[in-house]
Computed example of a mutant assay.
Amino acid sequence: MTNGAADDAVAPDGLTVGATASLVGVTVRTLHHWDAIGLVRPSGRTIGGYRLYSAGDVARIHRVLIYRELGLPLDDIGELLDAPAIDATVSLRRQRAQLAERISRLQGMVNAVDRMIEAASAGILLSAEEQVEIFGKQWQPSWVAEARDRWGDTAQWAQYAERSAGRTAEDWRQLAESTSALHDDLAAAKRAGVRPGSAEGNTLAERHRASIDAYFHCTHSMHVCLGRMYVADPGFAAYYDAMEPGLTLWLRDIIDANARDRGIDPEAATWT
């Protein structure tokens, strides 16, 4: 009989290594290793010298598998199996506390992923009422769905959704207040005749780009593309011109001038 055949046999006085491996769901090599390091030594041998595992040996293997599933290294498992009952209980209680902490951490990760999935679908984790209360009466909750339909398959939407998932109502309120202050300053600068390319104009353009960057990474080239869209899209144009007549065109011009000062040709700017 070959070694493999002997390993796969079931002897009267116990299970051979092959039968034991099949029973507990590990490889024969694993059992050989555990025998070599003294973790689980078979209680018997066949006449031919092959390992035989008793019911007690199999029970010890199952305990090893449980401890290994808990993340314990083999050296610690061996000490735990051979320790007095009171020492084993202390170790198990410590391991239980670590597991509870890990479960809590994993549950937090699951919740975060759930929020990201919801944010990717909904766009913002606020009710319609909360959106109007935070962003103002001029805000239309439908805008979020329209934005998702328009850009939902882009990397920028994915980044926006990821950031949105981590924001609370208070975070959104602070963003809204910052954006409102920016719009007031843009309108005031337009009325005061601030020229595109001036230091003040460039500062305002940078503030506007930073306001976009709060939602997704916005390069100067991308900022130019947004400025074009504001002018071309009637909805965006109406939104900005309601703050100050002609604000949309002026905003595009200060964005272009700011980009030009940073080496970007507005005429050749792309969404990169």
Score class of each variant (00 low, 15 high):
A165E: 03
L226N: 02
D233S: 13
R191P: 05
S221N: 05
I124P: 00
L31I: 06
D13K: 12
C225S: 06
N202T: 05
S164Q: 10
W143K: 03
L226Y: 11
D171L: 03
A232W: 02
R163P: 03
G235I: 05
P12W: 00
H62W: 13
D184K: 13
G197H: 10
G136W: 00
I254W: 06
A83H: 08
A112L: 09
A161Q: 14
L65S: 02
Q131A: 08
S211G: 02
A161R: 12
Y215E: 12
L31T: 05
D265F: 08
A19Y: 07
Q140N: 12
L23A: 13
H33Q: 03
E162C: 12
P42K: 01
G14C: 06
A268Y: 09
R252F: 09
V132C: 08
T219M: 04
A165W: 07
S127C: 13
R94M: 05
V90C: 08
A189S: 15
A97G: 05
E177P: 04
L226K: 03
D241K: 02
A165Q: 05
G246T: 10
D184H: 15
I134W: 06
S180A: 15
F236H: 13
R150L: 10
T203L: 14
D171A: 08
I117N: 01
R252A: 08
M1I: 00
I61A: 11
R252G: 14
A97F: 03
V231T: 05
M243V: 07
Y230L: 04
V224D: 04
G44V: 01
R167G: 06
P42S: 03
W271H: 14
R68N: 06
A6M: 10
Y53V: 06
L182C: 05
D233H: 07
A169K: 11
L74T: 08
A6I: 08
R51V: 09
A169S: 13
Y215I: 13
R94C: 02
A11C: 00
R209T: 03
A189F: 09
R262S: 04
R96S: 03
G78S: 09
A122R: 14
Q95N: 08
V113W: 08
D265R: 04
Y50C: 00
I254E: 07
Q138A: 07
N3A: 15
E162M: 15
I61R: 00
S142Y: 02
S221L: 01
E130L: 10
S180K: 15
S178N: 06
Q131E: 14
I117D: 10
V194S: 09
Y50K: 01
P141K: 00
